[in-house]
C-alpha cells in the first residue's frame, strides 16, 4: 500500500485529504456518518476575534452543479472557541486547523495569537478571501500589498503552520500567492468561492439577502484546477487545492496540477462520508499506478 503521509510546513498529516472551512462544522457534526479520525485534518468554520451573527436568511441558492452561499462568517468568536469548542474537538482524534478571518489586521493578529497558544491546533488557515462580509475578508486578498501586510503581521504572532487561503476574484492569483509566500506563509490554499449571483425571474428579486454570494461545487472545479496549476508553478511553498472536489479522481487531478493536499467542501453536503471515499480512492489509484508515495503525484502532470 502506498504511503499517503503528507507534510505542509510543520504540519504532518496521515493523508492529503482535509475538509474545507464552513462545510464540515467542527467535525463532530459528521461523526455519525464517518470515522473523522481518518481525515488528514478538519478545517473548522471561519473564526473571528469577536462573535458574528452572519448575514440574514436567505443565505444559500442552488445553482447548476453548485451553490451560492452568503453565510457571512457566523461564529461565536475566538474566546468561545478556546473555552468551549477546543476542549471538545481536541478529543475527536483528528487534527484541527482553524480558519481565521477578520475586518482589520489587528483582528487577524488577535485571533491568530489566541490560537497560537493552543497546543492541539497545529495550523491556521488565514481567510483573506471571504466574499460575504462587508469589510475585510476578501478586501485583504485582492491586492498584493494588503496580502503581504496581513500575512506578515500574522506571521509575527503565529509561530506554527500558517496557510493563506486565496481568493479567485483577482486578475492574477499568482501575484497574491507570491505576496503570501514572501510574507512568510508556509502554504497557500485555493480557491475560496467565486463571487456570483442568482435571481428569481418571477419575483424579480435576488435569491440571496446580500444579492451576491460565493459560488462553490463542481461548477468551479475547472477554474480552481487552472489556478492551482498556475500557482504551483509560481511559488515554492506547498499549494493546497480546493474547488468542487467530489471524488478521488477530482482530488488526484488537483494533485497532478501541483497540489500537495486538497480540501473537500461543498461535496460534504451531498455525501457526508465522501472524504473517506476520496482517501480510499487515492490509495487505490497510487497502487494501481505503481506509486509508493502520494508525494510522487504532486505536480506530475505531463504536458
Amino acid at each position: 500500500m502506498a504511503d499517503l503521509k503528507t507534510t505542509i510546513g510543520g504540519l504532518v498529516m496521515s493523508n492529503p485529504v482535509m475538509t474545507a472551512s464552513g462545510t464540515f462544522g467542527y467535525g463532530v457534526e459528521y461523526a455519525d456518518f464517518m470515522d473523522i479520525s481518518r481525515l488528514g485534518a478538519v478545517i473548522v468554520k471561519g473564526t473571528t476575534n469577536k462573535a458574528r451573527e452572519g448575514n440574514p436568511y436567505p443565505r444559500m441558492a442552488e445553482t447548476p452543479s453548485g451553490m451560492l452561499n452568503a453565510v457571512g462568517l457566523q461564529n461565536k468568536g475566538v474566546d468561545y472557541f478556546v473555552e468551549h469548542i477546543y476542549p471538545m474537538v481536541h478529543t475527536l482524534g483528528c487534527q484541527t486547523i482553524v480558519n481565521v478571518s477578520g475586518s482589520s489586521i489587528d483582528d487577524y493578529m488577535e485571533t491568530a495569537s489566541a490560537l497560537n497558544r493552543l497546543e492541539g491546533i497545529p495550523a491556521i488557515e488565514l481567510n483573506i478571501s471571504c466574499p460575504n462580509v462587508k469589510e475585510g475578508g476578501m478586501a485583504f486578498g485582492v491586492k498584493a500589498e494588503s496580502v503581504f501586510a496581513v500575512v506578515s503581521a500574522v506571521r509575527k504572532v503565529y509561530l506554527k503552520t500558517l496557510i493563506v487561503k486565496l481568493s479567485p476574484n483577482v486578475t492574477d492569483i499568482t501575484e497574491m500567492a507570491r505576496a503570501a509566500e514572501s510574507a512568510g506563509a508556509d502554504a497557500v490554499s485555493l480557491i475560496n468561492t467565486l463571487l456570483g449571483m442568482a435571481i428569481d425571474a418571477e419575483s424579480r428579486k435576488p435569491l440571496l439577502s446580500t444579492v451576491t454570494g460565493g459560488l462553490s461545487g463542481p461548477a468551479v472545479k475547472p477554474v480552481a484546477l487552472r489556478m492551482v496549476w498556475q500557482t504551483y508553478k509560481a511559488v515554492r511553498i506547498p499549494v493546497i487545492g480546493i474547488g468542487g472536489i467530489c471524488s478521488a479522481s477530482d482530488a488526484i487531478e488537483f494533485m497532478l496540477a501541483g497540489a500537495s493536499a486538497i480540501e473537500i467542501g461543498t461535496a460534504n453536503f451531498i455525501d457526508p462520508s465522501v472524504s473517506v471515499k476520496v482517501i480510499d480512492g487515492i490509495s487505490a489509484y497510487l497502487d494501481r499506478h505503481g506509486y509508493s508515495s502520494v508525494k510522487q503525484i504532486i505536480g506530475a502532470l505531463e504536458c
Binding site: G22, K45, M60, A61, V71, Q74, T266, F269
Partner: peptide, 13 residues
C-alpha cells in the same frame, strides 16, 4: 432552504 441538513453549513438559519 437547506444544504447540509446537519448544522454544518449554517445556511438555513
Amino acid at each position: 432552504m437547506m444544504a447540509c441538513g446537519i448544522g454544518a453549513c449554517l445556511c438555513c438559519v
